[in-house]
Design a protein around this nucleic acid. Structure first.
Lengths: 239, 239
DNA sequence: ATAGCCCATATTTTCGAAATTTTAAAAGGG
DNA sequence: CCCTTTTAAAATTTCGAAAATATGGGCTAT
C-alpha cells in the first residue's frame, strides 16, 4: 500500500523532494537555488541535484538561465489567471470523458474519495481562522485524491499528463491562500455539486461545476496573493 | 536574424540536438540510448548528456527507468490518437483566442507565414511520390511557422507551453508519414481554409477547420504507422 | 532439459575536483 | 564625480573516475 519513499535513484528522490518543497512553499517563490547550498540542506551531491532541477524546469516549478543557475519559479496574479483558465479547459474535458466512460469501479473510487474529503471538510474550522498546517496538508491530499479520482476514467494519458502539470501548479498557488487564512467559502458545497453530477452521469453539469470550482478557487487565491504582495512577502529571497 | 546554434551550455545544446534527432527520426522509436555510445556520436560529456536526457523525459520524447537508463520514446497508434485528440482541444482553444485577440501585426504575420507555406506547397510533388528529405524539412518548418503564427496572439503562456509540447509530439509522428510517401491529400486546401477563416475573424470556423486538419493529419499518419508496423520497421533498435 | 545461482562484464549513477563563467568590488581614467 | 576596465571571489558547468547496479552466460542440482 505505502511505497517506500527512498525508491529510485538519488536524482529521483531529489526531484520529488524539491518538488514537494516548492509546491508546499518551503522554498519561496523567486528564491535562488544555489547548488552548494542545496548540497548542504538536502544531502544529495551536485549531480543528482542538477538533474532534479533540470527536470523541475520542465514542470515550470524551477526556472533556469544558462550559466546563471536556478531559481524557484515566481508566482504572479497573471500566471494564476492563466493557469486557471487553461486548467479549466483541460480539467473539464477530463471530467467530461471520465463521467461518460467511468465504470462501476470508478463510481466506487469517486464515492470513496468524496467521503474521505467530506470527513476532512466537516472538521474544518470556521472561515476566518487560519488553517493549522497539518490539517491543510491533509485537506490538500484528500482534495487531490478526489479530483484525481474524478478524472481517472478519462483514458487519455496525454490529457492526464497535462492535467497533472496544471494541477501541480494550481496546488502551489492554492497553498498560499490556505496559509493566509482566507475565508474557506462554500468549498464543500462545490465539491458536493461536482460529485452529485458526476455520479448521476450528468457530464455537462459536472463540467460546469468543475469550471466554477476552478474559477472560485482562483478568486480566493487572487485575494491572498494580493494581500501578500501588499505585505511585500512575495519576492523575498529566503536564504 | 539567425541565432548561433552553439548558444547556451553544453547541456542546452545536447538537449536541442537530441530533441531534433528524435523528432526528425534519426534516433529510432524505442531505441536504447546508452550514455557511452552517445558521448561518442555526439561529442558531449556524460554530464551534459544526462541532463539533456532528463529534460527530454519531461517532453515525453525520452523515457527512463531508474538504474536502467534511457530510451527513445516509442510510437504507437494509440498514442497518436490520444495526442491528436488532446491537441485538437488545445490547438482550437489557442486558435480561438488568437483569432479574437490578434491585432494588425498578427494578421500580417499569419499572412506572411501562409504565403511562405503556400509557396512550398505549390512545389510539392504529386501525391504518390515520396518527399525528398530536405523538401520535407522545409515544409515542416513552414508548416510549423504557419501554425505558430496562427496561435501567436492567444496571450496565454501556459496554453502555448502545452500546445508546443503537443505540437512537438505530433510533428514526430507526422514526419513518419512524410517519409513513407503517403498521399499528401488536400493539405493546402485545409491550410487555406484555416487561413481564410482566421483572417475573416471567423473564430468558430477557424477552430472547426483546425480540428478537421488535426484529425485528417492523424488519419494519414495512422496509415503510415500501420504500414510500418506491418513491415516490422517500428520496434527496430538502430545501433 | 530447466530452473536457480554465481560470477564477469557492461552500464548507469554518483562523487569530487577542474575549468569556465558570472558577479561584484576595486582601481584607473576622463 | 562618474564611467569604464581590471581583478578577485563566487557560482555554475563540465570532466574523469569510482561506486553501485543491472545483464547475460555458464554452472550446478533437480
Amino acid at each position: 500500500m505505502t511505497a517506500p519513499r527512498n525508491e529510485g535513484t538519488l536524482a529521483d528522490r531529489a526531484y520529488r523532494q524539491i518538488r514537494q518543497d516548492i509546491i508546499e512553499g518551503r522554498l519561496a517563490p523567486g528564491q535562488k537555488l544555489k547548488l552548494e547550498a542545496l548540497t548542504a540542506s538536502y544531502s544529495f551531491g551536485m549531480s543528482p541535484l542538477r538533474e532534479a532541477l533540470s527536470r523541475l524546469t520542465g514542470d515550470q516549478l524551477v526556472i533556469t538561465e544558462a550559466q546563471r543557475g536556478f531559481w524557484v519559479a515566481p508566482l504572479s496574479v497573471e500566471e494564476l489567471d492563466d493557469i486557471s483558465r487553461v486548467r479549466a479547459l483541460v480539467e473539464t474535458e477530463a471530467v467530461n470523458l471520465s463521467v461518460r466512460q467511468g465504470d462501476a469501479q470508478w463510481v466506487q473510487d469517486v464515492t470513496d474519495a468524496f467521503e474521505e474529503l467530506r470527513a476532512v471538510e466537516r472538521e474544518l474550522p470556521a472561515a476566518e481562522s487560519p488553517l493549522p498546517p497539518n490539517l491543510g496538508d491533509l485537506w490538500e491530499a484528500k482534495n487531490r485524491a478526489f479530483h484525481a479520482a474524478l478524472v481517472s476514467a478519462c483514458h487519455s494519458p496525454w490529457l492526464m499528463r497535462v492535467r497533472d502539470l496544471l494541477y501541480q501548479q494550481s496546488e502551489r498557488y492554492r497553498r498560499l491562500s490556505l496559509k493566509s487564512s482566507r475565508g474557506r467559502r462554500a468549498v464543500h458545497e462545490e465539491h458536493a455539486a461536482i460529485f452529485e453530477a458526476a455520479i448521476k452521469r450528468d457530464a455537462l453539469r459536472a463540467c460546469r461545476m468543475t469550471e466554477l470550482h476552478v474559477q472560485r478557487t482562483a478568486d480566493e487565491v487572487r485575494l491572498a496573493l494580493a494581500a501578500l504582495k501588499d505585505a511585500g512577502q512575495l519576492t523575498q529571497a529566503v536564504a
